[in-house]
Amino acid sequence: MRGGHPYLVVVVTVSTLLFPLFVRSGETEKKFNVSAEDFDSFTEKFHRFYKVNSEEFKSRHLNVQNSTKRHAYLNSFSTVPQSAEYGINRFSDFSQKEFRDLFLRAHADRAPLFSGLKTEGLPVKFDWRDKVVVAPVQNQEACGSCWAFSVVGAIQSVHAIGGSQLQQLSVQQVLDCSFRNKGCNGGSTYQALDWLKQTRVKLVPQSEYPYKAETGICHFFSQSHGGVSVKNFTAHDFSGQEEAMMGQLVERGPLAVVVDAVSWQDYLGGVIQHHCSSQHSNHAVLLVGYNTIGDVPYWIVQNSWGTAWGNEGYVYIKIGGNVCGIADYVAAVFL
């Protein structure tokens, strides 16, 4: 993963390209103005409750107006079929800093470059959802727990691929008990998987240890208690080797990956092909499939921001070029 202060790079780059575009005529400015009525519609749709004319109301209104400028910039790249679309969504009243601080709390340890062989004869499209081994999209809410959702998503899928009934395992257990991580304040998929491997902790069903969207006290279970434990895992950097990464997905099951999701604040759907740098990985997700049919091959990625975001909770990312840093840190689980 890259060092330095990556957010500054992203913000300055966008600002430099963006704001000169919007110092224009009154007609153009009007295009980006979000009226009070429009903002009322936004608050009603997304169940926000801000006291009218309060400082928070004004601040949130301004954030939505600023988001429309970002959308115009991001959509200016969408000139080919299947391109990603950006617009108003449930995150539009967050400032970019708030969004990062709340939802982008994963970090990735440096992984060795993959040195294995490519898998020959891969299908042109593959989706683990077709095998009924991927649990429904979850919502991490205002908790930086994406790293735990990613790891648990991979484990429960691999468990189902092995012949067990698909069941949702406890994300809260990982959030509370993975002592090397920081709960809702962020964590590493590597540290979580290494903790599971070293301790042989059994993950229990979500029904026994439900998600609370806040860090709690670890609930321990006896060794005789049923659950799913991790025997081993691998973590590799597949930069420049995304075809080999496709083979890992088919052979190993859904993969826990860590990406740069700064631009995802405004994502509505389609295939992300641009302006999604790999300067700094900050969000963990679950890679469940790919599709190479058509002009733009893409990865199929399950997110943990609920089904109202993106493509019913999923995001599509162009294969090739390490878009969003999707190949930088890729973990496979063995049970």
Rank of each mutant, 00 (worst) to 15 (best):
V151Q: 01
F19T: 08
G306F: 04
T307W: 00
F39N: 00
T307E: 03
S178H: 00
A308Y: 00
G26L: 13
F42A: 02
V315G: 03
V250S: 00
R252G: 07
G153I: 01
V258H: 10
G270Y: 01
Y7E: 08
Q248D: 14
Q206F: 13
E56K: 12
S59K: 09
A36I: 07
T28R: 12
Y290T: 01
K182R: 12
F94S: 11
F94G: 06
S239D: 10
S59W: 07
H61T: 11
V9N: 13
V262E: 03
S239E: 07
A308D: 14
A111P: 00
A213C: 11
F42Q: 00
Q223P: 05
T234W: 11
A160D: 15
G270E: 03
P254V: 15
H47A: 08
F91M: 10
A108L: 12
Q168E: 14
S25G: 05
A148H: 00
V152Y: 02
S278R: 14
F77G: 06
T28Y: 07
L335K: 10
E85A: 10
F114S: 04
S25I: 04
T28S: 04
L17K: 12
S145G: 07
R24I: 06
K118W: 11
Y86D: 07
S95G: 08
P6R: 10
A84S: 06
T119M: 10
V12H: 03
H219V: 11
N33C: 01
L62I: 01
A192Y: 11
R200K: 12
A72Y: 01
V174T: 03
Q82P: 02
T189K: 02
N232T: 02
N53F: 00
S277T: 06
V9E: 12
G325N: 02
P112G: 06
S115L: 07
K45L: 12
V296R: 03
E120M: 02
V288D: 04
Q302N: 06
F126E: 15
S277C: 12
N185C: 10
N89R: 01
C218N: 00
E120F: 01
V80C: 02
H107P: 10
A111D: 14
A256K: 09
Y209F: 14
H107W: 10
